[in-house]
């Protein structure tokens, strides 16, 4: 026996990236715009969707719900009468804390991709892992609620840098908290200079119109791109 050194020089997440590209190719073929929606647990992702997806002006929406267990989030969207598929990540070692490209791939056959313009993938609530694993999305949106504290961008820079839009949720609670909104903006600007932001309350509806418009525009843009060939 002798020992040989083998040169590898490969990103350890290459396998996931390759699968994410395969997902992306499937989405592109069907003309679907895909959003990866990420946040800490309880930031209000599902409630935002409940609020915003009620009137999408003809944009056909589908949702992939990622949770460690159960289908509570999918149930909450049932009144919208749109395709909702639940992915549970709890097979194996205590349940994965994020969705990866393979999990999304395994659920694609349950979605009528040709009849969807906008697919929203609601990731597992977590500020660390989802930032590492692309799933084939076009756009990454993260929700940071004010009850989490204003220091989160500097504590989880990877997540706050990995997205194109940061939604600050639960602003109706600001009068009851010591949360310093300006400090949050300062931290966010340091970690991800120039990132688009929205300040909303899913509960009262304040600011959610802006998000609704953003999502409709995304889907419309994809349709226009498809029409232009």
């Amino acid at each position: 026996m002798h020992r040989t050194k083998v040169r590898v020089v490969e990103d350890a997440l290459d396998a996931n990236t390759t699968l994410a590209q395969a997902n992306r190719a499937d989405f592109d073929r069907s003309g679907v715009m895909v959003v990866n929606l990420m946040s800490a647990p309880g930031a209000g992702k599902t409630m935002l969707l409940q609020k915003v997806l009620t009137d999408m002006e003809g944009v056909r929406v589908g949702v992939l719900e990622g949770d460690v267990q159960g289908s509570l989030d999918a149930d909450r969207l049932s009144h919208l009468h749109i395709p909702v598929v639940q992915i549970q990540t709890d097979n194996g070692f205590g349940g994965e804390c994020h969705l990866d490209a393979n999990m999304v791939r395994s659920a694609l056959h349950e979605l009528p991709l040709d009849d969807i313009d906008l697919l929203i993938i609601e990731n597992v609530g977590n500020l660390v892992c989802p930032a590492e694993f692309k799933v084939g999305e076009d756009v990454r949106i993260m929700v940071a609620s004010v009850t989490e504290g204003e220091d989160k961008p500097v504590k989880y820079p990877l997540m706050f840098r990995a997205c194109e839009l940061v939604i600050c949720n639960k602003i109706d609670l600001l009068p009851h908290l010591d949360y310093d909104l300006e400090l949050f903006k300062h931290h966010l600007d340091g970690v991800h200079p120039g990132v688009e932001t929205m300040f909303v309350s899913a509960r009262t509806g304040e600011g959610t119109e802006q998000l609704r418009r953003y999502l409709i525009d995304l889907a419309t843009r994809r349709k226009a791109e498809a029409a232009a060939g």
Binding site: M1, R3, V8, A12
Partner: peptide
């Protein structure tokens, strides 16, 4: 970076 640079393996003579 999050990269596997190299590995050392055992081979039969």
């Amino acid at each position: 970076e999050f990269q596997v640079e190299s590995i050392e393996v055992e081979e039969d003579e």
